[in-house]
């Protein structure tokens, strides 16, 4: 499926998609967006990469084993909920840092939870797509 135009376009597109996904993730708490869709965009980006350059290249670009990303994402989501629990509050109570940060806005455990969701979605999309590409012999 390698073609010069597609390869060049991909090179340009992928950083844009990654930035866009982080944008979606961060603003998701206030505007349309969030971890689910942000993760899907990253997943799509790496799927495109794998389609153009092959799975091993895509795997290198992603750096981490996608299954591990799923695990880390789940862990992040869980820990974000447990933080409140260790403070003696009910499980998954939102905790917030009182001062808003520049650009990102207010930071708290729900944002961390959304990061967990984001990672899980990236991980599963990449796991599914990479495995399929590999097995179907692209």
């Amino acid at each position: 499926m390698y073609s010069l135009i597609l390869a060049t376009a991909t090179r340009l597109l992928i950083p844009l998609m990654l930035i866009f996904s982080i944008f979606l993730l961060i603003r998701g708490h206030n505007e349309p967006g969030g971890g689910f869709v942000g993760g899907l965009v990253v997943g799509a980006a790496f799927t495109l990469y794998a389609a153009v350059y092959g799975v091993s290249q895509a795997q290198n670009a992603l750096r981490f084993d996608p299954k591990r990303i799923v695990a880390v994402g789940l862990l992040v989501a869980l820990v974000s909920g447990l933080l409140a629990f260790f403070q003696g509050l009910p499980l998954m109570t939102g905790l917030w840092y009182p001062q808003p940060l520049p650009v990102i806005g207010k930071v708290g455990t729900p944002l961390l939870f959304d990061v967990g969701v984001y990672l899980v979605v990236i991980g599963i999309t990449a796991t599914i797509m990479f495995t399929l590409f590999e097995v179907e012999g692209e």
Binding site: G34, F36, V121
Partner: peptide, 9 residues
């Protein structure tokens, strides 16, 4: 929203 993503999985 979750149904869509789970549906995909």
């Amino acid at each position: 929203l979750t149904a869509i993503v789970i549906g995909f999985g």
